[in-house]
Design a protein around this nucleic acid. Structure first.
Lengths: 195, 195
DNA sequence: ACTCTTCTTGAGCGATCACTCAAAGAATTA
DNA sequence: TAATTCTTTGAGTGATCGCTCAAGAAGAGT
């Protein structure tokens, strides 16, 4: 045997994720990462191979955490409609208001890197589609339970729902008044409940 | 007198705008701009002062063109509702499908530069607010004309409308199938017409 | 205590970044 | 044509980029 690694992979990934989410891919420098991960360049490259690979791993982690959060909402609410509403509200809830709100990292990645780093953008696009597939599954379950009429198209509902989530999270970052974002979320939820 | 400038300011700004819109602020290098504007660095700096100033001028131009387009829709439609619908549809229309769809440059700017270049992000945020003010004005006019009931809050309608426009334009860039974006727009328009 | 293996270190690589400025070039006036 | 005035030119500035690798440090086995 030999010497063990001194860093914790998950801790390091979380630090990289927070940094990449805030600053984006290009604006995050190796210097920034060295400081955030408390690792020297050589160690970072030994552990994560490259800046791009580290970013991909961070984004995958972000996706997993987001999916886990959605599934928590599905599990803790009695109806699918309530779960979808709770998920929307969670983005404008009091709890999140401590750290300044950030738009969805997947969306930010697609917009920033569509031109210069198409690999990253395509990777993020895939996660975006997977997220919508999760929403669609929830809408289909709601129809199977009779919460939503069978005359609706679950795929269309999922697409609109994802558009709303995306717009809400964008507004959450752009808007100066959190109350405005909250009201926007309320109007979106009214639509869902009226199905 | 002396020698005249050999470039056309508007032509150069349009070229810079197209480049910045596609690639974003950070990923657009001076080399890129030199090629697109057919100008050497010295001339660019003499004409536009700095990369950041050139970006701001480009973004202002983008905003002006967007506002002009919206006002064209207002002028060419008989009702406000139709104008707001036509504006939404214009982002997913056949004509635009030649050059690959881009999300709103103002939104892209805010997301990319919120952390590293707050000046740029704040500048874009201001344009975002001005855009919504224009929407609100249209909704108020619709109420004054009796197209929309007075019980609605024009500010809230404008906020939701802008959220829809933003989400639609995002989807337009992210989605692989333009038909999906078109259907999303149709569902958004149904909401507007039901007011 | 000594060897072996692996991890960590950080100075430094070439490339590229935004940007400058002295010199050359072109249009106008005299 | 000569002088004047402004524009254009592009090599070059220092800083920073992502990244490498030889050398040193640290734990495990003997």
């Amino acid at each position: 045997m030999a010497r063990a690694e001194t860093y914790n992979r998950d801790t390091a990934l979380d630090a990289a994720l927070a940094l990449f989410w805030r600053k984006g891919y290009h604006a995050t420098s190796l210097k920034d990462l060295e400081a955030a991960l408390s690792m020297k360049p050589g160690s970072i490259y030994a552990a994560f191979k490259s800046k791009e690979a580290l970013f991909k791993d961070s984004l995958a982690r972000y996706f997993d955490q987001g999916r886990a959060k959605f599934e928590d909402h599905l599990a803790s609410q009695t109806s699918m409609i309530d779960a979808l509403s709770a998920h929307l509200f969670s983005f404008v809830s009091e709890a999140r208001r401590n750290d300044p709100a950030q738009a969805c990292m997947i969306v930010k990645t697609i917009l920033e890197n569509a031109e210069a780093e198409p690999h990253l953008a395509d990777y993020a696009r895939d996660l975006f589609d997977k997220t919508r597939a999760g929403f669609q599954h929830a809408f289909e379950a709601a129809q199977a339970r009779g919460e939503i009429g069978a005359e609706h198209d679950a795929e269309a509902l999922a697409k609109t729902y994802q558009a709303n989530v995306t717009a809400l999270r964008l507004d959450n970052q752009i808007s100066t008044d959190p109350e405005d974002s909250y009201k926007l979320a309320e109007r979106m939820v009214v639509e869902i409940k009226s199905l």
